[in-house]
Amino acid sequence: MSLTYMLEVEGGLSRGVMKSALLACGASIFSEDEAGFSGNFLGSNMFFLYRDRTDLSPSQVLAELVPSPLHWRVGSRVSLDAISSKFDECRDEIIRLLQELERRSAAHFVLSFQYEEVYAIRDEDGLHLYGNL
């Protein structure tokens, strides 16, 4: 069984920055096309799917119950399928990815569980973690 987390990222973050952040966190890219790419984290085998919106207009954040209004538009989304039996490893990899994105870019982002419960927000003040991811 897996738990799906959604990472919604502000437009302007390049595909290259996302790929390099994932690779720095132990991910392996195994499939790529014009819409995005997918792969697994080597430590936990957590699957991810990245999709950008370069061919479409940016959209609003879909995550519900965001603690404050967001003034940016989504340019890409990453689904992260955490494996229940390796949840601790998956959680650590997700947190490392968020920290790596914060280090590599000023882009805003929101991490939620299936667009319902918000676990992290990157805003102009930095990375904020909520609850127990």
Rank of each mutant, 00 (worst) to 15 (best):
T4V: 11
K86D: 07
L62N: 10
E64M: 05
M1S: 13
L62C: 08
F113A: 03
S68G: 03
A120T: 04
F30R: 10
S85K: 09
V17S: 11
V17G: 00
D88M: 11
R122G: 00
P67A: 07
E64A: 11
D123V: 04
L7E: 05
S85I: 09
F41I: 09
S38D: 14
A120W: 00
E89R: 08
F41R: 07
S38H: 05
M18C: 13
L23T: 12
P58R: 00
Q60T: 14
L133G: 01
S38M: 12
H108N: 13
A63V: 03
C90A: 14
I29L: 09
Q114L: 10
C90Q: 09
R53M: 14
L42S: 14
F109Q: 03
L62W: 11
H108V: 06
M46E: 06
S105K: 05
G126I: 10
V9A: 09
R103A: 14
H108D: 04
I83C: 02
G131M: 10
L101E: 04
L111D: 01
Y130H: 06
L13Q: 05
E102G: 05
A24Q: 11
Y50E: 06
L101T: 01
L56T: 09
A21C: 12
D125I: 06
L101F: 02
A63D: 00
M1Q: 11
M18P: 04
R122S: 04
L42V: 15
N45W: 11
E8V: 08
F37S: 02
T4E: 15
G43P: 07
V110P: 00
E124V: 06
D52S: 13
L98Y: 02
